[in-house]
Amino acid sequence: TCHRCLHIHPDPARSYRSEKKFECEHCGWEGNADLNGANMIALLGAAVNQPRG
């Protein structure tokens, strides 16, 4: 999943990740795959920890 556009690769057998590189074909974001993963964890954590109001 791309942390910028939240797009998941449409083919379950493939991935936007290649070794340490992540390249989203949907929004064009390119960068370190571990950074992308860390940003996804941060987004999920923020969503879980938001108080309802």
Rank of each mutant, 00 (worst) to 15 (best):
T1L: 10
T1M: 08
T1H: 06
C2W: 01
C2A: 04
C2P: 03
C2G: 00
H3K: 02
H3Y: 10
H3F: 05
R4C: 10
R4L: 08
R4S: 10
L6E: 15
L6A: 14
I8W: 13
H9V: 10
H9F: 05
H9P: 02
H9A: 06
P10Y: 09
P10C: 04
D11W: 01
R14C: 10
S15H: 02
Y16V: 00
R17D: 06
S18N: 12
S18Y: 08
S18G: 02
E19A: 11
K20I: 03
K20S: 12
K20M: 01
K20D: 13
F22R: 02
E23M: 04
E23R: 09
C24I: 03
E25H: 07
E25C: 03
H26I: 09
H26T: 10
H26N: 14
C27W: 04
C27V: 06
C27D: 02
C27E: 03
C27M: 04
G28C: 08
G28Q: 07
G28N: 08
G28H: 05
G28Y: 01
W29M: 07
W29H: 11
W29T: 12
E30N: 11
E30P: 01
G31P: 11
G31T: 06
N32P: 06
N32Q: 08
N32R: 07
A33S: 13
A33L: 04
D34R: 10
D34T: 11
L35H: 12
L35Y: 07
N36P: 06
N36D: 07
N36I: 02
N36R: 01
N36Q: 05
G37L: 10
A38P: 05
A38L: 13
N39W: 11
N39H: 14
M40K: 15
A42F: 13
A42Y: 12
L43T: 10
G45H: 12
G45W: 12
A47C: 04
N49F: 02
N49H: 04
Q50Y: 03
Q50P: 00
Q50A: 11
Q50C: 00
Q50N: 03
R52Y: 04
R52N: 08
R52V: 09
G53D: 02
G53W: 01
G53Y: 00
